[in-house]
Write a protein that binds this DNA or RNA. Sequence first.
DNA 1: ATAAATATTTAGGCAAATCTAAAAATATGT
DNA 2: ACATATTTTTAGATTTGCCTAAATATTTAT
Lengths: 219, 219
Amino acid sequence: MTSSEENYIKGIFHLSQGGQHSITTSALAEKMETKPSSVTDMVKRLAEKGLLHYKKYQGVRLTEEGAGHALKVIRKHRLWEVFLVDKLNFAWDQVHEVAEQLEHIESEMLVDRLDALLNFPEFDPHGDPIPDKEGRFKTREKKLLSAMPAKSRGICVGVKDSSSQFLKFLDKYHIELGNTIEVLERESFDRSMHIQVGKRKLQISHQIASNLYVKPQPE
Amino acid sequence: MTSSEENYIKGIFHLSQGGQHSITTSALAEKMETKPSSVTDMVKRLAEKGLLHYKKYQGVRLTEEGAGHALKVIRKHRLWEVFLVDKLNFAWDQVHEVAEQLEHIESEMLVDRLDALLNFPEFDPHGDPIPDKEGRFKTREKKLLSAMPAKSRGICVGVKDSSSQFLKFLDKYHIELGNTIEVLERESFDRSMHIQVGKRKLQISHQIASNLYVKPQPE
DNA sequence: ATAAATATTTAGGCAAATCTAAAAATATGT
DNA sequence: ACATATTTTTAGATTTGCCTAAATATTTAT
């Protein structure tokens, strides 16, 4: 399987996570930053290989085999991200590009030993779960910070947008995974929020709050 | 630069190490396990990019830029080999294939941090020198064991053949880099040798002796 | 319900990297 | 030195993954 094929499979998998039963050609084209006609070409090839179901004009859906393959690529991607952060001291906004390359290295032994070296991590530096050898992964209760009511608290467990710009913004305001975030007040006018992180109080826009996942805490 | 182009550049570099001023199309085709006509196509492209000198029917020679690029790829390959052995406990006969893939990952930061993680190693698991960031590498006095006279001693510092079969053979007879090898006697008939490694005495064929490098020791 | 807008596929082309078969240049042997 | 053998290059084809432009199917709106 080529890198390009793997990237398509991964792209379809991610779009499917959004709840869609079937992924349209144009949605996939946008995700892959390519043209719909190129997508049509590729999905025909992947359908022939049994990795996805495709009927003309009906969009695509991964087969079991395709989904399994996607999980393997995602596992590799996330493990490499952990490696880069934990072992090579990369910042969390610097890992994606490199992991995009490393995820295509083929060697089961490499992946399994890397997993062991990193102590079988369950989440990557952005809070996304890492599938195990069998493709299983932990899920945890999480809500967008923007969906949390005033006076509630949550532990920051992940980001929705993992672009470098957003991650650097979080760094700047010292918001990191594991922090407890308390919602002090919500502004209904612009949907901005007053929050407290540790001892620091700050005001964040809706755009920020709607890209941060927290695990709600009782009381 | 594509992986394929990098592999050609690397192949030419290695062939040039053998002392040849100019590398023929057919020698390169054999090295790359491809056909001479494919080589002609590729070297034309590489010549256009300024990575090598090529005149029809005259063979090829790397430019400064080409050689610099080759050294970078070789640096990455060998660093990854050290990583696989030191950090992931790969055996020395299991690293080549995976390193062939990893050597094409593009990220200067990755390479430099990997180098630091490994404590700036100067030699890879097969005893080959690792170029530094500037392409410089240590050379050390080494001779083929087969060229050592009887009653001489040397420290095993490298292998010429790094095929899995040969490396496994060495494992089987507990010959490893760093061992002191003493030549007890040479058989002129079949050029086999009686050697002593640590406390063990063994007889090795010329084929083995001519693929093991040693650093000759005085007296 | 039918026309207009949108989405998707087809057709034909291009670049990279390979191949085979044929042509051209170089090297070798007597 | 000249014919033969070998090496190298050229020509034309294939596959992957992409493109543009045109054709076709589907969806939407009146």
